[in-house]
Design a protein around this nucleic acid. Structure first.
Lengths: 213, 213
DNA sequence: ATTATCTATAGATCTATAGATAATGC
DNA sequence: ATTATCTATAGATCTATAGATAATGC
């Protein structure tokens, strides 16, 4: 019975190619590359398995499309708040919170990235090419600002790379820990929303505080 | 040619069961559950694939043995420094660094934990049972100390859970990012040792600093 | 005609077990 | 006798493709 159980992404104007892409995205984000089969993707999209290969030829291809897409989205919004009127510290806080918000809107992404970079580090090189000058552009601007803020005594001396690592660690790892945090606190999905909001401001405060001269 | 290429874990007094266990540990830690096959484990251990099942019956069994083992090791060394003569802050620094060192000695572990908790959160319940009173014991002691340090004005007000999250995030995520950091900085494995040492002290300083009243 | 979708299947794993043989403990 | 190890294989995937049929664009 129930020969075809179309996932929640059926019809509704969307093209089947798009539907498959979204089904794959959902599964890859939640379970990683190896644990997702094209058969599962087809079931989730509500079509047969051959169609997945018709549009994307290989599973690897499909994954790479999604992966590059997500990484680019992620990188393009990294440290983009740049308001002349704000102090370094205020600007930093806004950037930290914006970064947190991107991750909160794509909570499966950290797992996908870590999973892929760990099991398949060669892909980093291809990603680097894909992003071009973007990362070093962002880094150089931030680096100049950090040095100036240190020189002006607004913050304590710190390497820019360490600051970036601290921001990314505190923002990203929280979402990787979600299952553990939920198990420990016993919070429902709803209650977890509150925990997220608290953590968002705590992370920003922690970093800003740690930079006091 | 080269019909049998025994991994680096052959013979040398060790029992074959132990050799298989270590081969599996290495592969699971580096590649996760789904991407490791019992065939690969056997090749790494230098035996045939059936023997892996002879000793551990199922792949799942083998994995669980290793997983529980590692989680217990990890949890049992969490916040164990407890020297009466030290201030809260000094004790905290020692605990942060000790925690960092455990991870540095088991650099594949964070990936395994995150991977498993994300794709298979049910296992958390079984782990919880396995650890018994240990986590809440550690938590309660730390919580009392945090509250006292706040009351005495040694640190700013902070929830104990937030402090734990911050410590774990900063320590663990760095090792998950290793491939990225190495790609960005272009550091060799040797040079990465230096980066680790710098990060170790930077993380502790960042946290201690962020707690100033 | 071309494009989208399906059914069917080849070929490659992979896990787990059965059954044979070798090694070891009395 | 018991335990350790091997060879062989059944049965379950899973990916990718071939080839049939249905839908769509002229």
């Amino acid at each position: 019975m129930a020969e075809t159980i179309p996932g929640d992404m059926a019809d509704s104007g969307k093209t089947m190619e798009q539907t498959i892409l979204e089904a794959a995205e959902k599964l890859f984000l939640g379970r990683g590359y190896a644990m997702t089969s094209t058969t599962m993707i087809a079931r989730e999209a509500g079509c047969n398995q051959a169609l997945v290969h018709y549009y994307f030829r290989t599973k690897e291809n499909l994954f790479e499309t999604i992966f590059k897409n997500k990484v680019t989205l992620f990188a393009s919004r990294f440290f983009t708040v740049d308001d002349e009127r704000l102090s370094f510290t205020d600007k930093l806080r806004k950037n930290i919170e914006a970064h947190f918000d991107i991750i909160a809107a794509n909570p499966g992404l950290p797992f996908l990235l870590i999973n892929e970079f760990t099991t398949n580090p060669e892909r980093l090189a291809s990603i680097k090419k894909n992003l071009g000058e973007l990362p070093s552009g962002i880094y150089n601007r931030l680096d100049a600002e950090v040095r100036q803020a240190i020189a002006e005594g607004e913050i304590r001396p710190i390497a820019t790379l360490d600051l970036i690592l601290t921001v990314v660690s505190l923002n990203v790892f929280f979402f990787l820990m979600r299952p553990v945090v939920q198990q420990i606190t016993g919070a429902t999905d709803d209650q977890f929303g509150t925990i997220i909001a608290i953590r968002r401001s705590e992370v920003a405060s922690t970093i800003i505080n740690s930079l006091k001269p």
